[in-house]
Amino acid sequence: MPIKAKICGINHPEALTAAADGGARYIGLVFFAKSPRNVSLPLAAELARMVPTGVRTVGLFVDPTDDFLDQALAQVPLDLIQLHGGETPERVAAIRAAHRLPVMKALKVETAADLDAASAYEAVADILLFDAKPPKDSILPGGNGVAFDWTLLTGRRWSKPWMLSGGLTPDTVAEAIRISGADAVDVSSGVEDRPGHKDPALVRAFLEAIRAVA
């Protein structure tokens, strides 16, 4: 089965084209002001209109207010809401019900105990995303270029689809898939030539590495 890929933090057309043409299944747009990948709503709307049929547009939010979600969804055609903050299962369920869109919930992992939190979200999220816990000095909840121990996922099963993230690069993604058993992966900083700027060549290399695994 082909490995599905999400390229997150797209903020310019060249990177989006490289991702879509290379076979990415998901395009991620970041709505978090502190991130170097943050996009304005008008730019996000422009980029979303470029996403081809069959590729899903994902909006990444960090503990968003209802007002901001309403604004974003009124302007940007999204297929999926990604929640990457400290949202509780109750908050995830409320957002999903209010906006009638599937929701991906990111869970921050450092130890096996962190995976136990996943069970509380299985009933309310459509996709689980396992990302590395950010360094203590980071203001970003994700996109820090940090990996966690992929063996923590070996042999684990959940009732919902899941995706692996955290420190993946064109050079490491094949091993990460082999060890974790992931059939979907998410990358952000690992395909950048500087913080917040996706390098189309690295995007293509990442997607080629995934195809080689499949």
Rank of each mutant, 00 (worst) to 15 (best):
M1K: 14
I3N: 00
K4P: 00
A5G: 03
K6M: 00
K6L: 07
H12I: 09
H12T: 02
A15L: 08
A18K: 03
A19Y: 04
R25N: 12
Y26D: 04
G28Q: 10
G28D: 10
F31A: 11
A33R: 15
K34P: 01
K34M: 04
S35D: 00
S35Q: 00
N38Q: 06
L41K: 11
L47P: 00
L47V: 07
V51D: 13
P52Y: 06
R56E: 14
T57N: 09
V58R: 04
G59I: 09
G59M: 11
V62L: 06
D63W: 02
P64I: 09
L69D: 01
A74C: 01
L83A: 03
G85W: 05
G86S: 13
E90V: 07
E90C: 00
L101M: 13
L101Q: 10
P102L: 11
V103L: 02
M104L: 15
M104T: 12
M104K: 04
L107S: 09
V109S: 02
V109E: 09
E110D: 15
T111G: 13
A112S: 14
D114M: 13
D114H: 15
S119P: 07
A120D: 14
D131T: 14
K136V: 14
D137P: 08
L140N: 02
L140V: 10
G145P: 08
A147K: 12
A147C: 08
A147W: 07
A147F: 03
W150M: 12
W150S: 02
T151F: 03
L152Q: 06
L153Y: 11
G155R: 12
R156N: 07
W162S: 08
W162N: 08
S165V: 12
G166I: 04
G167F: 01
T172V: 02
R178A: 15
A184T: 13
S188M: 05
R194F: 03
P195K: 12
D199I: 07
D199L: 12
D199V: 11
A201L: 08
L202D: 02
V203D: 01
R204C: 00
R204N: 00
A212Q: 14
